[in-house]
Simulated scan of single mutants.
Amino acid sequence: MGQTKFQGVPGILRPFKEYIEKWSLPAGSEVVFYGVPGTCTPFVELLCFAIRSLPLTLIFVPYTEEEKAQKLTMVPDVGFQATNACPPKNPAVLVIMGGLAMPNMPVGADDVASLIKRWKGSGTIGVCFMHMFQKAGWLDKMHFDLLIDADISVDVTTGQ
């Protein structure tokens, strides 16, 4: 298991894109993102933007509710947006967002581990901030082929 340090938003997007590219997925292959609506979706949109040149079907699933899944489509001059219902049929890659592991979410590690098991054969990527999967104990219950764990540092200046 290798570990590499990166910086900033490109440090999240580049390893993600490289991992997806390594799969050499055929056109139309599904990359399915599972996350918290509103909290995870901006990061999902960034991840989609990183792989915009690949002919993939990109899908966002709120929590693990696949019946509510939405296709993510590139909208000119805006970026990726949810456009229409699109439940996953045969995911090539599952992307599990760390917001799911936050306290008080309606999803637990066992739910996501079952989901990963159900889509056996799919690649698995975890994307989180501030060691959320580790803190929540999820890494003991599931395996990610790629784990992107970023830190957030915030400086706020007022009165400039």
Rank of each mutant, 00 (worst) to 15 (best):
M1S: 13
K5C: 06
F6Y: 15
F6D: 10
G8S: 14
V9C: 12
V9S: 14
G11E: 13
I12W: 09
L13R: 10
R14C: 03
R14P: 00
P15R: 13
K17N: 06
K17E: 14
E18I: 11
Y19I: 03
Y19R: 14
I20W: 09
K22F: 00
W23T: 03
W23F: 04
S24R: 13
L25C: 00
P26D: 03
A27R: 02
G28N: 04
G28T: 02
S29K: 00
E30Q: 11
V31Y: 11
V32W: 06
F33N: 10
Y34T: 05
Y34N: 07
G35D: 07
V36T: 15
G38M: 12
T39H: 13
C40Q: 06
T41P: 10
T41K: 11
P42Y: 09
P42I: 10
P42K: 13
F49Y: 14
A50R: 14
A50G: 15
I51R: 09
R52P: 00
L54A: 12
L54V: 09
P55A: 05
L56S: 09
I59H: 05
I59Y: 10
V61I: 08
P62V: 08
Y63F: 15
T64A: 10
T64Y: 03
E65R: 15
E66Q: 14
E67C: 02
A69R: 08
A69C: 07
A69V: 11
L72S: 10
M74H: 14
V75M: 11
V75H: 04
P76K: 04
G79W: 01
G79Q: 02
F80T: 07
Q81P: 00
A82G: 12
C86N: 07
P88Y: 07
P88V: 03
K89F: 01
K89W: 02
N90A: 13
N90S: 07
N90L: 07
V95A: 05
V95D: 01
I96N: 01
I96H: 04
G99W: 05
L100F: 03
L100A: 13
A101C: 05
P103G: 07
A109W: 08
A109Y: 11
D110E: 15
D111I: 09
D111W: 06
V112F: 05
I116E: 05
I116W: 02
K117E: 13
R118V: 04
K120S: 12
K120I: 02
G121T: 08
G121S: 08
G121V: 07
G121C: 06
S122N: 05
G123D: 04
G123K: 12
F129H: 13
M130A: 01
M130N: 09
M130F: 02
F133W: 06
F133H: 11
F133R: 12
Q134F: 05
Q134N: 08
K135R: 06
K135Y: 01
A136D: 00
D140Q: 15
D140T: 10
D140L: 08
M142Q: 12
F144M: 11
L147N: 10
L147Y: 07
I148A: 11
I148R: 14
D149F: 06
A150L: 06
I152F: 01
S153E: 09
V154A: 13
D155H: 14
V156K: 10
T157D: 12
G159Y: 10
G159C: 07
Q160V: 13
Q160F: 13
